[in-house]
Design a protein around this nucleic acid. Structure first.
Lengths: 199, 199
DNA sequence: CAGGAAAAGTGCAGGGACTGCAAACATGCG
DNA sequence: CGCATGTTTGCAGTCCCTGCACTTTTCCTG
């Protein structure tokens, strides 16, 4: 799992570009920051920027492209005695804990996403890749057809909704709540079929 | 509510631009169709294109910008004896029937969205506006806080998932199934809390 | 129905995102 | 060391999108 110099440098450059993009956009706004600005802040040429990210938006979001695969692996590692929802809950719990530990970047990401609908769309698109793999895993797990049966596609999408809703409330409450708790609260709703709240 | 010539012409131009964009992109692919091509096909100047749509992507998707508001109205018209989920089901049923009636455009939309992830992101963004209004309606209806409590945000997002999942399966089954039925099937899953499918 | 107000359409100039290509440059390996 | 392979960079070019100024069309009122 260790890395040569070359690989480490690439990771560093990628991270530098992402962080520069995120911080600059958080401070000045999406359309007042150019790719040239970002490249300059990360100390690479503008042309190099596009070796790392296909678009400015992607650099601002900057999620790990390997993430969907690791998610799928984590799910496959769950015991088959669990129901699909239980397995998803467990994986989400670990995920949320990891995200909450990044106390720097996630709040910034949520801030810029909130300020720029275009970025919200990109973030959702990033999740879409995970959802597709998830649907396939669900289909395999429950013996259903990923494309045609209800549960795989829908549950994969709902899982994304649970996470996004948790992130939204996390930010709305100024990060005082625990992200894993917010996620769990979402899953409770899902498992209970959205009961009418008592006043 | 009626329309002068001016208003009717605007609607016609908007529709012409959207349909031209959709058909051209469906046939040739997103990056082989320029805004100039679309404008030419709709017989307006390229500059005029941007009086109607803020971006090429939006023209391809081309959803009615008034739609979120009509959705919110439809919901407010539901009797307060219904649970939130019941009201959403009812509105979705009407919505799905209307969409299924557009036998020309929706299949094309789903085709291009499937072929171009960037467009999927835009489509989701279009839904996002509805989801926000929905969350507010839910909060008002159930006496919860839109930003902080679980149900408004999450159920609004899940509602979107139900519709998107239905659209996905509609296309996967070559439009042989009934869209309202697919939507209903989704809501059944939600209300039942995603039970383990029996094999 | 004339004529002006308001709205919509258009041309032009320009900034910025992004790509293909080919030349430097760095790294890893025999 | 020296070659093979991967990375960075500059350059030229296309296309998206915007602000501004100007023309054309629709509408309305006297």
């Amino acid at each position: 799992m260790t890395t040569g110099l070359r690989e480490r440098k690439k990771q560093a450059t990628r991270a530098a570009l992402h962080e520069a993009a995120l911080r600059l956009v958080a401070e000045h706004g999406l359309d007042r920051v150019s790719v040239d600005d970002i490249a300059a802040a990360a100390e690479v040429s503008p042309r190099t920027f596009f070796n790392y990210f296909p678009s400015k938006d992607d650099a601002v979001i900057g999620l790990d492209p390997e993430h969907p695969l690791r998610l799928a692996e984590a799910l496959s590692a769950r015991p088959t005695t669990e129901t699909p929802v239980q397995a998803l809950r467990a994986v989400h719990a670990a995920e949320a804990a990891r995200m909450a530990a990044e106390t720097e970047l996630w709040p910034l990401r949520l801030q810029v996403v909130d300020a720029h609908p275009a970025l919200a769309a990109r973030l959702t698109a990033s999740f879409a890749r995970s959802e597709q793999l998830l649907a396939e895993w669900l289909a395999a797990r429950t013996g259903t057809r990923a494309e045609l049966d209800v549960q795989p596609t829908l549950l994969a999408a709902v899982q994304g909704s649970v996470m996004r809703s948790a992130l939204h409330r996390w930010r709305a409450g100024d990060y005082t709540a625990s992200l894993p708790a917010l996620v769990a609260e979402g899953w409770d709703q899902v498992e209970a079929g959205f009961p009418v709240p008592h006043r």
